[in-house]
Simulated scan of single mutants.
Amino acid sequence: MTQPTDKLTIYHYPVCGTCRSAIKWLETEGWELDRIHIKETPPSVEVLQELIPLSGLDIKKWFNTSGEVYKELQLKDKLAGMTEDEKIKLLSSHGMLIKRPIVTDGKRVTIGFKPEAYTEAWSH
């Protein structure tokens, strides 16, 4: 029987193959998913301020560096001169700037999809 704690929040982009692979992996493991469309509803500044530290990753790792928006805004050259607050505001303003999917249970966070990282974080 599924426990109430068997629910994860996933910020994803439905047409993203990586996101679809992550969802399939998580569902195969028995997770119930609260899906949030990252482009339509990007995480707020407050949510990012909670999630980024939980991920254990530098904020630079949260940027989708291969995405069109990242390139259009020429962020490769600009990020180094920005404060962490400015980076978080930028991420929250445009879901397509964020590396995806973001998966969290409120205590842990993973970004992107690597089966070995998911096995470590999300295996039952």
Score class of each variant (00 low, 15 high):
residue 103 V to G: 03
residue 81 G to W: 01
residue 4 P to G: 09
residue 52 I to E: 05
residue 83 T to W: 04
residue 7 K to N: 08
residue 90 L to P: 02
residue 40 E to W: 01
residue 97 L to K: 06
residue 6 D to G: 04
residue 59 I to Y: 01
residue 16 C to Q: 03
residue 71 K to M: 05
residue 105 D to A: 14
residue 63 F to Q: 01
residue 34 D to M: 06
residue 9 T to L: 04
residue 87 K to R: 15
residue 73 L to S: 05
residue 41 T to D: 10
residue 74 Q to Y: 00
residue 57 L to D: 01
residue 32 E to T: 15
residue 83 T to I: 09
residue 107 K to Q: 12
residue 111 I to M: 13
residue 91 L to W: 00
residue 62 W to H: 07
residue 30 G to Q: 06
residue 27 E to R: 15
residue 43 P to K: 02
residue 82 M to Q: 10
residue 32 E to D: 13
residue 98 I to W: 04
residue 33 L to G: 07
residue 100 R to A: 04
residue 56 G to M: 04
residue 99 K to Q: 10
residue 15 V to C: 02
residue 117 A to L: 11
residue 41 T to K: 13
residue 69 V to H: 00
residue 10 I to W: 03
residue 39 K to A: 11
residue 22 A to Y: 10
residue 47 V to R: 10
residue 45 V to W: 01
residue 62 W to R: 11
residue 120 E to H: 11
residue 33 L to T: 10
residue 107 K to F: 08
residue 116 E to F: 07
residue 27 E to T: 14
residue 29 E to R: 15
residue 7 K to T: 15
residue 116 E to S: 12
residue 106 G to D: 04
residue 9 T to C: 03
residue 52 I to G: 04
residue 26 L to C: 04
residue 5 T to L: 06
residue 9 T to K: 11
residue 35 R to T: 13
residue 31 W to Q: 02
residue 45 V to F: 12
residue 95 G to I: 07
residue 93 S to A: 14
residue 85 D to K: 07
residue 91 L to C: 05
residue 107 K to D: 04
residue 11 Y to A: 01
residue 93 S to Y: 10
residue 69 V to Y: 01
residue 94 H to R: 15
residue 4 P to C: 08
residue 9 T to Y: 00
residue 11 Y to V: 09
residue 13 Y to W: 07
residue 33 L to A: 11
residue 28 T to P: 00
residue 101 P to L: 13
residue 118 Y to T: 09
residue 113 F to K: 05
residue 98 I to M: 05
residue 15 V to T: 12
residue 94 H to V: 02
residue 122 W to I: 09
residue 93 S to L: 09
